[in-house]
Design a protein around this nucleic acid. Structure first.
Length: 445
RNA sequence: GCUGUGGUGGUGUAGGGGUUAGCACGGCAGAUUGUGGUUCUGCCAGCCCGAGUUCAAUUCUCGGCCACGGCCCCA
């Protein structure tokens, strides 16, 4: 039998119920924060992603040529397409733009739990406003989303790449990529700090003519743990170094203060100055969210301030701020937590308050019930019509299995009197009703 | 990129070099042509693919594919 391609998934109706509820919940939160949904193509020019992330990404892309020989690829992420769209369609729109998006992305990688070749990303971008308050708005939305979807035990880590970058350049490291190197000295240093590689850092300092003893205060800086209160010791460490700017630290303080006003208190918030996100286009605040029980693939959200609009000739709109939310991973975490707590609803509000009405024509011409089926549907009810001509007993089994709340049986005797038997399957109470929507609705309410 | 474990009806499983390949759930039908969720009966439906060893392979060996994990990486 033909199976689905590796790394892809099918979503059955039962699964889609909670996925759709989550999407709607995220969308509702985005709208409350002023963000509006956009959509871009599933495939884009290959160049869009090589411009953003370098040629190296090609190995992980579903890249192909169309019949005209144009180099294309399935999109591996959504930030670049949205930036492209802003440059192409929205130059004249009033700034800032608050955009949200949701869709499939494709990466040719080994897949495993929480990591698929086709995966779903929800995200937002704030374009045309920057600074600590813009960053706070974005973080606040992320917190609001995770809070409202009922996720528990998540940790948000907030940092600012400017702090370490300022310190390192202040000490004399270059933030430019030297000839023959594949990354700037500053980037190497940040990687060493993130990994706790003290020797590597000291060596790097020496080879750049910097006293290796300066690696010590930086190491202390990277090891600070805690919430907003860690900014004070950080300030002391940085103040002791000559020529190091405190501007980024001040900005982060403003951001954190604003977030505490704008959003609920997260289960765990840590200031982490080594959140690097591994990306050189991040310029300011960066943040990410982990969920412990997902293990190795536990990052469910990540974002920050970045410079990308200059790639489209719109450098004046840089930096932008946004985040991507790993929809599949949030679902996995919610499913795991619902299971652990014996919760029936994976996503809050996924169950429709309306009860399904199973309409069962019994020993009559089904045509006779179609009018009332339509009326009920027009009135907003969920109605399923029995189509297999089941006998009465089997029809009840069927109604029960599809999760119906009510059955409406119409047999020959009913038809003569223009009525039907409406039964509540949960209570077992049954009564005759006129075969028109308003009579039935009266009983339902 | 490295690596561990596993693949038997739709699902979950038992078994095992020669068997009518067992069980449970499921689907369909009947017992029960105007009231279901219990019970009973019947039916439906399976050894991932290829090569090798063998008189004989679903079972053993190798390869592939697929699935589930752990590292590396992760725009």
């Amino acid at each position: 039998m033909v199976q689905k391609p590796r790394g892809t998934r099918d979503f059955t109706p039962a699964v889609m119920k909670s996925r759709m509820a989550l999407e709607q919940l995220l969308e509702e939160r985005a709208r409350r924060h002023g963000f509006n949904r956009v959509q871009t193509p599933i495939f884009e020019s290959l160049e869009l992603f090589t411009a953003k992330s370098g040629e190296g990404v090609i190995s992980q892309l579903y890249a192909f040529e169309d019949k005209g020989g144009r180099p294309l690829t399935l999109r591996p992420e959504l930030t670049a397409p949205v930036m492209r769209m802003v440059a192409e369609e929205m130059r004249m729109d009033t700034k800032p733009l608050r955009l949200s998006y949701f869709g499939q992305c494709y990466r040719y990688e080994e897949f495993k739990k929480g990591r698929y070749r086709e995966f779903f990303q929800y995200g937002v971008e704030l374009v045309g406003a920057s600074g600590p308050l813009a960053e706070a708005e974005v973080i606040a939305l992320a917190i609001d989303m995770l809070d409202s979807c009922g996720l528990k035990n998540w940790q948000i880590r907030i940092g600012h790449v400017g702090i370490l970058k300022d310190a390192l350049t202040g000490l004399g490291l270059s933030d430019q990529i030297e000839q023959g190197a594949n990354e700037a000295a500053v980037a190497s240093a940040m990687r060493f700090l993130d990994k706790g590689d003290d020797d590597g850092l000291a060596k790097l300092f020496s080879s750049n003519g910097i006293d290796p003893s300066f690696s010590e205060p930086l190491r202390q800086l990277s090891q600070l743990q805690g919430g907003a209160e860690t900014l004070e010791p950080a300030r002391e460490i940085l103040s002791a170094l000559d020529g190091v700017s405190l501007e980024s630290l001040d900005e982060l303080k403003i951001t954190l203060d604003a977030v505490s006003s704008l959003a609920a208190t997260p289960p765990s918030l840590a200031v982490d100055l080594t959140v690097a996100r591994g990306l050189d286009y991040y310029t300011g605040m960066v943040f990410e969210v982990q969920v412990e029980e997902l293990g190795g693939e536990g990052q469910v959200l990540g974002g920050g301030s970045y410079n990308l609009m200059h790639l489209f000739g719109l450098a004046d709109l840089d930096p932008c701020c946004g985040f991507g939310l790993g929809f599949d991973r949030v679902m996995l975490a919610l499913e795991a937590q619902a299971e652990a707590e014996g919760r029936e609803e994976v996503v809050p509000g996924q169950q429709d308050g309306r009860g399904l009405i199973a309409v069962i024509p019994f020993n009559i011409d089904t045509q006779a019930v179609l009018q009332v089926v339509r009326q009920l549907r027009d009135a907003g009810q969920l109605v399923e019509l029995e189509l297999r001509g089941r006998k009465i007993g089997k029809a009840f089994t069927w109604a029960d299995k599809i999760g119906a709340t009510y059955t409406l049986i119409v047999g020959p005797r009913d038809l003569e009197s223009g009525t039907g038997m409406l039964k509540n399957l949960k209570t077992g109470i049954e009564q005759a009703v006129e075969l028109d929507a308003s009579s039935i609705l009266n009983i339902l309410n």
